[in-house]
Amino acid sequence: MRALTAAAIGLAAATALVLIVTAVGTPAGETSPEPLLTTVPGPKK
Results as ranks from 00 to 15, higher is better:
residue 3 A to Q: 12
residue 6 A to Y: 14
residue 18 V to W: 15
residue 4 L to I: 11
residue 27 P to S: 04
residue 36 L to W: 06
residue 45 K to W: 07
residue 37 L to D: 13
residue 34 E to L: 15
residue 19 L to Y: 07
residue 23 A to C: 06
residue 20 I to S: 08
residue 23 A to M: 03
residue 24 V to F: 10
residue 16 A to R: 02
residue 6 A to K: 11
residue 45 K to E: 10
residue 32 S to P: 01
residue 9 I to S: 04
residue 8 A to Y: 02
residue 4 L to S: 04
residue 4 L to Y: 03
residue 28 A to C: 01
residue 11 L to C: 08
residue 5 T to H: 11
residue 34 E to R: 08
residue 20 I to D: 03
residue 8 A to M: 11
residue 8 A to H: 02
residue 5 T to R: 15
residue 34 E to I: 10
residue 7 A to T: 05
residue 25 G to V: 05
residue 20 I to N: 09
residue 39 T to Q: 11
residue 22 T to P: 05
residue 6 A to N: 13
residue 35 P to N: 02
residue 14 A to N: 01
residue 29 G to A: 03
residue 24 V to S: 09
residue 31 T to A: 14
residue 23 A to F: 09
residue 12 A to V: 01
residue 15 T to C: 04
residue 13 A to L: 09
residue 36 L to C: 04
residue 20 I to K: 04
residue 24 V to G: 00
residue 24 V to I: 15
residue 10 G to W: 03
residue 19 L to A: 15
residue 22 T to G: 13
residue 30 E to V: 12
residue 14 A to D: 04
residue 21 V to C: 13
residue 10 G to F: 08
residue 40 V to M: 05
residue 28 A to Y: 00
residue 15 T to R: 00
residue 17 L to C: 10
residue 11 L to H: 02
residue 24 V to C: 04
residue 13 A to G: 03
residue 44 K to C: 06
residue 31 T to D: 05
residue 23 A to T: 10
residue 29 G to P: 06
residue 11 L to V: 14
residue 37 L to I: 05
residue 39 T to R: 15
residue 29 G to C: 01
residue 11 L to Y: 08
residue 26 T to Y: 07
residue 27 P to A: 12
residue 1 M to A: 12
residue 20 I to H: 05
residue 39 T to S: 12
residue 38 T to S: 12
residue 39 T to H: 11
residue 29 G to N: 11
residue 33 P to G: 06
residue 24 V to T: 03
residue 28 A to S: 13
residue 17 L to I: 08
residue 41 P to W: 05
residue 26 T to H: 13
residue 25 G to W: 01
residue 36 L to Q: 06
residue 16 A to D: 00
residue 16 A to W: 02
residue 43 P to I: 03
residue 37 L to G: 12
residue 28 A to L: 04
residue 2 R to V: 10
residue 42 G to E: 06
residue 7 A to R: 14
residue 31 T to R: 11
residue 37 L to F: 07
residue 7 A to P: 02
residue 2 R to H: 09
residue 4 L to R: 13
residue 22 T to N: 14
residue 21 V to P: 01
residue 13 A to S: 09
residue 41 P to G: 06
residue 29 G to K: 08
residue 25 G to T: 01
residue 33 P to Q: 04
